[in-house]
Design a protein around this nucleic acid. Structure first.
Length: 322
DNA sequence: TATCAGGAGGATG
DNA sequence: CATCCTCCTGATA
């Protein structure tokens, strides 16, 4: 039986907008790239639109078996998403005949809501750092819009759609309706619209909430503070790599720790990492050949080296600082 | 064939 | 000037 989700689809990779789950060893998982890009909002019992906060466009990629709390959400709206799995006895049910304690259900939903929102905000924050853009789409320049589009293409493995949205500022993008998006891209306009909607919702939330409130959802690593709130700060390759490494739930499919204590990491998908770096640096021609050359420049500087036992695509930070 | 090592020159901030 | 990009040759797994 096993885990049908992760055996058959790319549950976690490349999406900064899905719920975190415990690290899973990619060696035990297939690296297939199923292009399942539908947005089944109703699966978790969430409204298609207007849920106070955010939407979850990629949670169909979640590793439901490994995420301890996600099943609670999937079981509840079982009527909306028929499942062959047996619900756990303690799980809340939407069946009105069984009238579960309302406070428990509300409390549970509240907790889930908080967690989901926190994770989504965190992931947007990560994407902002990696892309060097601000979280609020309204502030985006044309370049920022293109970056975000490239990123979204990459997340959902869309064909080139960014070319259909040329010369658009963030505020132009935000004023577009779903129909407008569909006009630009009949096939993927709705995905882009939904994804943008998440960002808009998140930005609106941040505006409503005082900065302290977002602290619970803020990064647990001190290092990210270095990059935080410095959108114009140039990023070094080693910093970028570490940012990816510190988000294993998002990027472990392309780069992961081999030995975190020793700072040894492995690039699992060289082309992918190179592409991410290229997006970040506005270098569309970036490839692993060039990226690895830049990594090798760090040898002399004592920032990165090859581990004692040299292996392909495996490098080591000389001075671990976490 | 992909990766690795490193030289060299150029672009950029 | 530091950093990275780009292109290159040659070696290795």
């Amino acid at each position: 039986m096993g885990s049908p989700c992760c055996e058959n689809m790319d549950c976690t990779a490349h999406s900064p907008l899905y719920i975190s789950h415990p690290y899973t060893d990619p060696r035990t998982e297939r690296l297939d790239k199923t292009d399942d890009i539908q947005l089944p909002y109703s699966l978790l019992g969430l409204p298609e639109r207007g849920w106070p906060g955010v939407y979850l466009p990629c949670y169909n990629r979640l590793d439901l078996e490994e995420n301890p709390w996600v099943p609670r959400m999937t079981e509840a709206p079982a009527s909306a998403a028929p499942s062959s799995r047996t619900p756990e006895p303690s799980l809340p049910s939407t069946n009105p005949d069984q009238d579960p304690p309302p406070e428990t259900e509300e409390c549970c939903l509240e907790q889930v809501h908080t967690m989901v929102v926190g994770e989504v905000l965190k992931d947007i924050d990560t994407a902002c750092k990696l892309l060097n853009i601000t979280p609020d789409p309204l502030d985006w320049s044309c370049v920022h819009v293109q970056k975000w589009l490239l990123w979204t293409e990459h997340l959902y493995r869309l064909p080139q759609v960014s070319t259909m949205f040329k010369e658009l500022m963030g505020r132009d993008l935000c004023s577009m309706t779903e129909a407008d998006f569909r006009q630009h891209s009949s096939q993927f306009g709705d995905i882009l619209y939904a994804h943008l909607d998440i960002w808009k919702s998140a930005a609106a939330m941040k505006e409503r909430c005082p900065p302290d409130d977002s602290k619970s959802a803020a990064d647990d690593d001190s290092w990210s503070d270095v990059m935080c709130n410095c959108p114009s700060q140039p990023i070094h390759l080693w910093q970028f790599l570490r940012e990816l490494l510190l988000k294993p739930h998002n990027y472990s499919r392309c780069i992961r720790w081999v030995n975190k204590e020793k700072g040894i990491f492995k690039i699992e998908d060289s082309a992918h990492v190179a592409r991410l770096w290229g997006i970040r640096k506005n270098r569309p021609a970036m490839n692993y050949d060039k990226l690895s050359r830049s990594i090798r420049q760090y040898y002399k500087k004592g920032i990165i080296r090859k581990p004692d036992v040299s292996r392909r695509l495996v490098y080591q930070f000389v001075k671990p600082v976490w």
